[in-house]
């Protein structure tokens, strides 16, 4: 066991994956000598060489498009896109090629690749460095969307993503990168993609969240009345959605709040609410609430904390939902 933060845990995972499978290569902007802008790939080029940790030209579509070719021809590429805001130029390659190739060839040509992307706000970054676009890719059939929060979950999920026979977008909440450490096993282990985690068991209210918002939820729960028994679910994978874990919880509690950083309209909160009313209608004691980002452009960092969901907003939702 080692005590690692999220960055260190991902570095360790990549290192172990590269040791175990020589088909695994890393590619992206500044991932080599510089170790990536968040230092996630620090030291890996020194260890594995320039052929396996590749500083590519500055072209996101080129990074994903060539990674698709690498995957078609037997490699297990792990491209890094520096920030979620720069997924835009690669959108066509992700959605129109990576996601479709297996289906397009009726299984003849799968595209196993893992696209690593730092995501979300909270680090006082410039424009297009703080967004939460996970729903866009959830609405693009053919991709899996993984969004771990903790170092140990990230290790198991990233290992599973690298070994997955299909394309995975692996979102890494940058606010959590260095925010805390925990025990992470150095053993080889996978966490199944598509399985949520019950972080805290409770009987009065279910909160579903993922990424950095998890810690805001924990803060809100600390401030909630002592007799409020709240169940907290870390979704961990956005697609495939683990509706069973959510439904099982809501059938027990009868009340649910979905919390995410991404904008409200068309966000995963909408999908989860719809699924809950389909599955748990007769169990519901209150409308499903959403605490999310606003339907605005993510503001620059002077107003960043006004946008991001926080313990106070979540606390209000908890009080309202419990009192309904």
């Amino acid at each position: 066991m080692a005590t690692l933060n999220l960055v260190q845990s991902i570095t360790l995972t990549l290192q172990q994956a590269m040791q175990a499978d020589e088909r695994v290569i890393l590619l992206g902007e500044d991932v080599g000598l510089n170790g990536g802008v968040f230092r996630v790939t620090d030291g890996l080029q020194a260890q594995f060489g320039e052929d396996r940790v590749v500083d590519t030209p500055l072209a996101e579509s080129g990074i994903i498009g060539t990674a698709i070719g690498l995957a078609i021809n037997g490699m297990r590429p792990i491209p890094e896109i520096q920030y979620e805001g720069f997924l835009g130029p690669a959108y066509d390659q992700i959605v129109n090629h990576a996601a479709r190739y297996r289906n397009r060839t009726r299984g003849a040509i799968p595209v196993p690749l893992t696209i690593r992307v730092p995501v979300g706000g909270g680090i006082h970054a410039p424009e297009l460095h703080s967004d939460s676009p996970e729903t866009i890719y959830t609405h693009s059939p053919g991709i899996k969307v993984v969004y771990p929060t903790t170092p140990s979950d990230a290790k198991g999920l990233l290992t599973a993503a690298i070994r997955d026979p299909d394309p995975v977008i692996f979102f890494e909440p940058k606010k959590v990168y260095r925010s805390f450490r925990e025990e992470v096993s150095e053993d080889d282990y996978e966490i199944e993609i598509g399985k949520a985690k019950v972080v805290n068991e409770g009987s009065d209210l279910t909160i579903v969240t993922w990424g950095a918002s998890l810690f805001e939820c924990l803060g809100a729960m600390d401030n909630a009345p002592d007799d409020a028994d709240i169940e907290l679910i870390d979704l961990r994978t956005i697609y495939p959605l683990d509706i069973d874990t959510i439904a099982e919880s809501v059938e027990k509690t009868g009340r649910c709040i979905v919390v995410h950083e991404a904008p409200l309209t068309g966000g995963m909160g909408a999908e989860i609410s719809a699924r809950i009313q389909e599955r748990c209608f007769l169990h519901l004691e209150a409308p499903v609430q959403r605490v999310t980002g606003f339907d605005t452009i993510m503001p620059f960092y002077k107003l960043e904390n006004e946008y991001l969901v926080d313990a106070k907003r979540i606390g209000s939702a908890i009080a309202e939902t419990l009192a309904y």
Partner: peptide, 10 residues
Amino acid sequence: LHATGIAWAE
């Protein structure tokens, strides 16, 4: 781009 990636794998 896929051709470039395929050749890169070679």
